[in-house]
Design a protein around this nucleic acid. Sequence first.
RNA 1: GCGGGUGUAGCUCAGUUGGUUAGAGCACCAGUUUGUGGCACUGGGGGUCGUGGGUUCGAUUCCCAUCACUCGCCCCA
Length: 413
Amino acid sequence: MLQTFRGTHDHLPDVAVRYDYIIKVAQHWAGLYGYNLVSTPIFEYADVFSRTLGDTSDIVTKEMFVFEDRHGDKLVLRPEGTAGLMRCLLSNGLMHQLPQKYFYAGPMFRYERPQKGRTRQFHQIGVEFMGEASPLSDGEAITLAWDVLGALGLKNKVALHINSLGDTESRQAYRGLLVEYFSDFKSELSPDSQERLLKNPLRILDSKDPKDQALVAKAPSLEGSLNNLSKDFFARVLESLDLLKIPYSINPRLVRGLDYYCHTAFEFVTDTLGAQSAVLAGGRYDRLALMMGHKEPIPSIGWAAGIERLELMLDQPVLGARPLSLIPIGEAAERKVLGLAHDLRLSNISVVMAPSGNLKSRMKYANKVNAQAVLILGEDELQKGTAVLKELDNGNQQEIPLSQIKDALKRLS
RNA sequence: GCGGGUGUAGCUCAGUUGGUUAGAGCACCAGUUUGUGGCACUGGGGGUCGUGGGUUCGAUUCCCAUCACUCGCCCCA
C-alpha cells in the first residue's frame, strides 16, 4: 500500500530538479532549431499504437499497459511518443500545413521487467520533424541531438551509430533475401533468432548470440540491397554530419524494432548504463501516416531520448536557486516579516521563512535549504527599523536599515 | 516473459553457526553556546530484521511462497 507500483518511482526534489534541467536544456536547443513544444494525452485508443508499431513488435505483444474504460473502449498508456504525435497531426488537420516541427517531453509506459535505466513509467524528450523529405532534415535532427547531448556535458560518454534501412522497396527486397538465407540455417539459430525469423528477421542482425553472429557475418548485407535512391539519400545524411564534424560510425547491424521506420536509423549509445546502451535514438518514418489511414505518406524524421538514462549519466550536480532565509523573532517581527517576504518575492527574490524553533535550528534550516544569506529580525532590530543580514558562505554579518535590504541583497548576487 | 543475486534504523552497512533488551557510521533532535549555521564534544529519539505462511520449546537467522530492487537475456529510450 505504501509502495509504488513495480517499475514506477517518486521523483523527490533532488532528482526532479535534474529531470527538469534536462528537459529545459533540450527544449531550449530544440527551440533554436524551430521545434515547438506540444503535448498529447498520455493515453490513447489502443489502435493508435497497435496498428502502427507492428503486430509482432514486442512493444505491442507484451509491453503495453492496456485497459478498457467503462464503455469497453480499448485504451493504452502510450509506450512511445511518435505515433501519438502523428495522430495529433492528422486529428488537427495539420497535414495541410506541413512541415511541422515538434518538441515534447513526458512519461511513457512499458510493461517490462525493470532494470537500471529501465522503468515501467519512464520519461522521454523527443522531437519530430514532420512533412519534410529532404535528407537535410535527417542531418539537422541528428545535429540537434548532438547539441543537446553536448549541452548536458555527455559528448564524451556517447557514440553515434547510424545505418540506413533503405526505402520500402529496398527494405522489402532485403527482408526477402535475409529470410531465404537464414531459412537454410534455421536449426542452427538461437531460439530467439528462430522466433525473429518469423517476426522480424532484420533483428537477427544485432543478436548477441555468438553462433547467430557467425551466421550473420556471412549473411547478405543490408547495404547491398539498397537501391540508388536509398544509397544517395544515406550519403547525403552522412555528408551533413561530415560537414558539421559530428563523429559517427556506420553500423550495418543497426536496425529499428518498429515497423514504420525507413532510411535513416541512428542511436547514441553508451557503455555506462549496463545492458541499456541506447540513450537517444530515432529514425525516418515516412510511412507512418499511411499506416494510420492517411492517403499519402508524410515523410518525417524524429528521435527520442530517455530522461532516466540521461540523468544517470549527468556528472555535475544541478543546483537550484539559492534563497534568502527570513528569521523573525517574536510576534511583532513575525507580522513585520510577512509583508517584507512578499515584497521581496515580488522583486523576484526567492525567500524561505523559518518561523519556529530556536535560532540555532533555524540557522541550520537556512543551511539545509542552501540559503545564500539569512535575515534576522528580532525585537531590537524591529525598534530600530533594521535587520541583521548574514551571508552564510563567509559568515559576514551587518545590521542594515529595512529600506536598504533589496539593494544589499542585489550586491550579494 | 526467462535465468542469477539481494532485501536489518531515513541512508550506507555490520551481526545473529536458531536462544534474554538487534549494532555502527552518516542523517535527525537536544545540550555545551538563555539571539547566530557549517567544526568539535556529550546525550537522545528512531527498527513489524521486505511481507505472508511453515518447521521449532524458541525464527531476524532454516524452508516455501510473495513483493520490491538489482545483474544478465529478450526488447528498448
